[in-house]
Design a protein around this nucleic acid. Structure first.
Lengths: 221, 221
DNA sequence: CTATTATTCAATCCATCGCTTGAATGATCT
DNA sequence: AGATCATTCAAGCGATGGATTGAATAATAG
């Protein structure tokens, strides 16, 4: 270690950034943002093989973005702290602001229609209190069960058409999903609007909502 | 482009992170944080060859972290916006919090002594107003000339011993340098304290100071 | 103690990255 | 226009990273 301390520091910062530089790991972080999980569950959700998933998780741990603990024979990973979430968010913001490609993809998700501005979390909280809004959780049932906004309906994109009749035509619908890198809510809003419903996206997803200290309902098992 | 939009988005976010994953590029960003600069000047400051520097800069541009404009035959690069600075800062914070290696390096910079807490920018501003502090800019003369905190003395580490006599023994000294990844201020504080002076580091460097909207003095050419 | 389950390690292959070198482009100056 | 200067491009090399496979480790169950 005869290199300059300055370079040594930059190497360490670069290590953190490199951990964020693979889509597979961003996908894992998105899952971890929702709550701690074992390796197998993460592999399942992200479509990675177990061994590959394990290696990516170890890189996240080495970079200080995630930590792990043992629970019986399973190893449970979770985000180190809220800074990791902030880092993911900032990454997304910079990309959305400055990369034309991202704008194009997001436009595609909204089905060509110009999507309305997202609803802020504070706004949603206020309107939930007065009951003037329907909240829709567009995630798989198991993730919904592990924690969701109180009063939210749950439906995946595939189930969306079926629950349309249950939605009131006049009430505004606010859809949310996993958070930083979620695309389900975008797609759900596009579908709902095509059916003439007044739908908007929540700013951020469940992890951000929880991070704000707002109530999260966990289903009993 | 038959891959899912979700994966396409993650690829874009990963592109931004990857741009931050090489020490050479972090070094370039540190320079750019101080103000816009031409390719040659950047290559000189970072010790990269011109061609190599140019390629790194193009990666930063592709990731949306930097932008460029032409000025005569020179191409001038600058940070896209304050978000880039935030991203750099968050990267550093995560590394400092969670990586043991970083703590070790920083301890080494402080010469083994436990360094005092840095001074916040608000504190320094207040104490500058009442004149109860000496500010020391530990950067090369050209960077000092391009913008510095009003009233600050300028001395590189090498020159530090020479100006010691000019420093009052009782006044507190606050040292600062380039900012996010600066190490000069750490070293300067260590040196000054070994000489029995009451020195502390400024939180962040000149870019953060400027970003706060605080006064920056630029020397006439 | 052995079997089972969950995770990690080790070795391999292929793709990509970073750096170097030398040529090409683009704008200015005479 | 030709010369000059700053920057970029293009090709090649060595090193590193991500995915796959199969074996090794750790904790629990029988």
């Amino acid at each position: 270690m005869s290199i300059s301390p300055k370079l040594a520091l930059l190497e360490e910062y670069a290590l953190v950034a490199r951990a964020l530089s693979a889509p597979a790991r961003l996908s894992l972080l998105e899952q971890l943002a929702q709550g701690e999980r074992g390796v197998e569950a993460l592999a399942e959700k992200t479509g990675l093989t177990i061994a590959n998933c394990s290696q990516h998780l170890q890189q996240l741990r080495r970079a200080g973005l995630a930590t792990s603990r043992r629970d019986g024979k399973a190893v449970i990973y979770r985000l180190t702290d809220a800074k990791t979430l902030q880092l993911m968010d900032l990454l997304r913001i910079v990309a959305e602001r400055n990369l034309a490609q991202v704008e194009r993809i997001l436009r595609g998700l909204s089905g060509g229609e110009d999507a309305p501005e997202p609803v802020s979390r504070a706004d949603l909280a206020a309107r939930l209190a007065e009951g003037s809004v329907t909240v829709l959780d567009v995630r798989p049932a198991d993730e919904y069960a592990a924690g969701h906004i109180p009063g939210a309906l749950n439906a995946t994109l595939a189930q969306l058409e079926q629950i349309l009749p249950r939605l009131e035509l006049d009430a505004e619908i606010v859809a949310y999903c996993r958070g930083p890198y979620c695309v389900y809510a975008h797609q759900a809003v596009a579908t709902l609007r095509r059916h003439g419903l007044n739908a908007r996206r929540l700013e951020g997803g469940l992890p951000e909502w929880r991070e704000d200290g707002r109530p999260v309902l966990i289903d009993a098992e």
